[in-house]
């Protein structure tokens, strides 16, 4: 087993590590960067809990090896709205009850933030069907998705005006 030197930037913090190639990005973010907002729900790419952004794009950190991310910019839920959770989508999750136990929540947020931004940029409020398709790779066991769909609708609607 060869350790591989890897430089990662996570939420603005850059570190160069000697990483065993098999280490999942999720584990390295959690253990080496002490960031707890990446949750592992299934470790086989089927629940979306571990979604992070790599160079701005959502990706499952349980299907990514840290060594693949040399030089890449990684963002986790902590980067969205700080510990006050002030991002527009975080606030909407709160007001629309889009979370209960919170375990899947970072994954949903990281999946849906770009989706919200794209729709706001386009100035369109997507259909509920479209919103549900956008989150189809994320499983929530608590909310029944109702509050999450409402939160996405609200976050987009509030920003483009004429909302709900």
């Amino acid at each position: 087993m060869t350790m591989t030197e890897t430089t990662l930037t996570v939420n603005g913090q850059t570190r160069t590590l000697d990483v065993e190639p098999r280490r999942l990005l999720a584990d390295v973010i959690r253990q080496e960067f002490d960031i707890a907002g990446v949750h592992i729900g299934c470790a086989h790419g089927a629940c979306g809990c571990c979604t992070v952004h790599i160079d701005g794009t959502p990706r499952l950190s349980c299907l990514t090896f840290a060594v693949q991310c040399d030089g890449r910019d990684i963002k986790t839920v902590e980067s969205l709205g700080g510990f006050d959770a002030t991002h527009v989508l975080q606030l909407a999750f709160k007001s629309e009850h889009g979370l209960q136990c919170g375990y899947c929540t970072p994954g949903f947020l990281m999946t849906l933030v770009p989706y919200v931004e794209e729709n706001v940029a386009r100035g369109t409020l997507p259909s509920d069907e479209d919103i549900r398709e956008a989150m189809s790779g994320n499983i929530c066991r608590c909310t029944g998705y109702h509050g999450i769909v409402a939160a996405v609708r609200k976050a987009i609607g509030d920003q483009i005006g004429g909302g709900q």
């Binding site: 060869t2 591989t4 065993e20 098999r22 060594v67």
Partner: peptide, 10 residues
């Protein structure tokens, strides 16, 4: 549920 060891070649 973590992979067994391998070497990585880019």
């Amino acid at each position: 549920m973590r992979p067994s060891a391998f070497d990585y070649h880019k």
